[in-house]
Design a protein around this nucleic acid. Structure first.
Ligand code: SF4
Ligand code: SF4
Lengths: 143, 143
DNA sequence: TCTTATTAGGACAAAGTAATCCTAAAAGAG
DNA sequence: CTCTTTTAGGATTACTTTGTCCTAATAAGA
């Protein structure tokens, strides 16, 4: 459904949404330790997200990554799109080219509604709203 | 969600369920053409399924693959399990190790119910029942 | 029995994904 | 101004998945 890379990216972005601000930047290494993944690899992902302005960054001592309030309002799906591209999200279980509700594949009715709902959730909820639930203790980050 | 390999396998098995019988075996090449994928690759998948007795086979002229009535009663999920293993099915969107409904990740409530439903559908419906819908024209194979 | 068509199996090749490493550029601190 | 810390970016490596190819085994039919 999602690549490992975008799982990492989602985790990292939500970590930033919860813990960072423009005056409290967070280093790639710290995030990597918190969400338990190789820090050079995460650094790459953050660079990619930074290029697309979904995370902001600053170099040098006291530098690091953070999310602007505007970035936090963007849907979480954006993160996935940037890392995985849209192809991965668009292709379906049986990977048929010309399928539709008129010409559904055998598992269409088992799968399509779920897939649609999943996408919608990620599309209609902002990074901030997912982060809010972490802050309130309703959901948890990493382990 | 599913690997390409298991998509192919599901397609091939359903093709066999619809078109084959012990007295009407189907060659790997014919299936590959029908569902449009490289035939040596499909042959490998069919071999794997054959080792696990989900498809039956016979060599030589007039040989080919077919499904026994017993095999058709097995849940479609079996095919996926054989090709992808259980790991892939068990791991979840954010890939957390110790998550649960008590310690859910931020996307748990968007995702877990859908994932469960999908698995259940594949688990509770036999190959035959999916094939039945193809025969009745309710669903379609490939394109 | 001999030939031929087909599956079985293993070795191999290509592509895609995940992860590492090294050097450059920027920015704060002294 | 210089040193240090941190991100940026490219090159490289490793691993996994996908796909190919060649040979052996098997079974039918002439
Ligand atoms: S589940 Fe529906 S949309 Fe997905 S491949 Fe099958 S027919 Fe197409
Ligand atoms: S969605 Fe639920 S089950 Fe899946 S990783 Fe998140 S917490 Fe775990």
């Amino acid at each position: 459904m999602l690549s490992s890379s975008s799982k990492y990216a989602v985790n990292a972005v939500l970590y930033l949404a919860v813990h960072s601000s423009q005056i409290n930047k967070i280093r790639a290494k710290e995030i990597a330790e918190a969400i338990k993944l190789p820090s050079p690899f995460l650094a790459k992902l953050l660079q990619t997200l930074s290029r697309e302005n979904i995370v902001s960054s600053s170099k040098g001592p006291t530098g690091g990554f953070y999310l602007t309030p505007e970035a936090q309002q963007r849907p979480l799906l954006e993160v996935v799109k940037i890392i995985d591209g849209t192809d991965r999200l668009d292709e379906c279980v049986l990977g048929l080219k010309k399928c539709s509700s008129e010409k559904p594949c055998p598992v269409h009715f088992s799968v399509q509604p779920l897939k649609k709902t999943f996408r919608k959730e990620l599309e209609e909820n902002s990074i901030a709203s997912f982060a809010e639930k972490v802050k309130s203790g309703e959901t948890y980050l990493f382990v």
